[in-house]
């Protein structure tokens, strides 16, 4: 009697036992909970994020910083400009937990009030770079061809000038040095980075079948891009935007430190660090407190970006 064919050369997939249809009811093997919510990238990411200490710590810190920026009066009843030269560089005492600056200002109050301009610069610059860079990147990646070459070259031009250098030159010639001015200057030299990342993500998504399907259903290119390509390419942009927000805050402080960022009349961490540098040897705490506030804020945005990246990356999820 000849042996059955498959026992000699079991092909891929054939070694599995398949129950005959009459033995097992279909629902039992193939049961699918149709009422369950569909697994989405964002849903999965959120479920993962909720349990991550990194995410919880960083978002709690960010919430705190934003609250301080919005309502500094909740945290101190001292004004940042209530300075008394009699208190110059004195140590901490009741009601003034961090001591005083050289001009006799309460360090704690200045650290609290310094949050708003920094956060404002970070948020505005991030909005600006995501809007401009996102639009340029999406158009370049989705339509490709000549438009892509043109937009990519323009982005290259701005990318070739280092952020801090371009910002210094532009700040020097701009009038009025408010948070908005600094944010605009950072946007001018920051958008190419977002554009590059958006372009890469859209290029990848463009090959997907749901894009072809949307086109086949008769949607215009524009609506395919807006409704299908961009939403699916957004995750790396969100990650870079979160990290950049921290970086922009640090850059603003660097510019203020160099004396060409925010106007000296605006209470800001960078300005206070700059003012404290001459007394570093006698009173390091005057420099260290605003520096710590600044670093902690930047750190929490970078940590948040990291946590979101891990959660969105399916490769990392197996760990």
């Amino acid at each position: 009697m000849p042996e059955p064919l498959q026992s000699k050369t079991p092909r891929r997939g054939q070694e599995r036992y398949v129950a005959p249809p009459d033995e097992t009811p279909l629902q039992a093997t193939d049961s699918l909970d149709e009422t369950a919510p569909p697994a989405s990238l964002w849903g999965d990411a959120w479920r993962q994020l909720r349990t991550r200490p990194l995410f919880l710590i960083s978002s709690a810190l960010i919430l705190l910083v934003i609250t301080v920026a919005v309502a500094p009066g909740l945290f101190t009843d001292q004004g940042p400009r209530d300075c008394d030269l009699a208190n110059t560089m004195q140590g901490p005492r009741a009601g003034h937990p961090l001591g005083f600056t050289q001009l006799g200002c309460d360090i704690y109050a200045r650290v609290i009030y310094g949050a708003r301009p920094s956060v404002l610069v970070g948020v505005l610059a991030t909005l600006g770079t995501v809007l401009i860079g996102g639009t340029v990147g999406a158009l370049a990646g989705f339509f490709g061809g000549r438009l892509d070459s043109l937009l990519s070259r323009v982005a290259d031009i701005f990318f070739a000038i280092p952020l801090i250098l371009g910002a210094i030159v532009l700040m020097q010639v701009s009038e009025g040095r408010t948070s908005l001015t600094v944010a605009m200057v950072l946007t001018v030299f920051g958008w190419p980075q977002v554009a590059r990342i958006m372009r890469g993500a859209v290029l990848e998504v463009r090959q997907a079948e749901f894009i072809t399907a949307s086109r086949a259903l008769g949607s215009s290119s524009m609506s395919t891009m807006l409704r299908h390509a961009i939403p699916n390419a957004l995750s790396p942009v969100i990650v870079i935007a979160t990290v950049s927000l921290g970086i922009y805050i640090a850059t603003e402080a660097t510019l203020s430190f160099l004396g060409i960022g925010l106007h000296p009349s605006i209470v800001s961490w960078g300005g206070d660090i700059s003012a404290a540098q001459n007394q570093l040897r006698v009173a390091p705490q005057v420099l260290l407190y605003p520096a710590a506030a600044l670093s902690l804020t930047v750190l929490s945005f970078i940590m948040l970006g990291d946590a979101v990246r891990d959660a969105l990356d399916p490769k990392g999820r197996k760990r």
Partner: peptide
């Protein structure tokens, strides 16, 4: 490394 990235270079 995260901390080093977060602290501005002038600090």
């Amino acid at each position: 490394s995260l901390i080093v990235i977060a602290i501005p270079i002038f600090v």
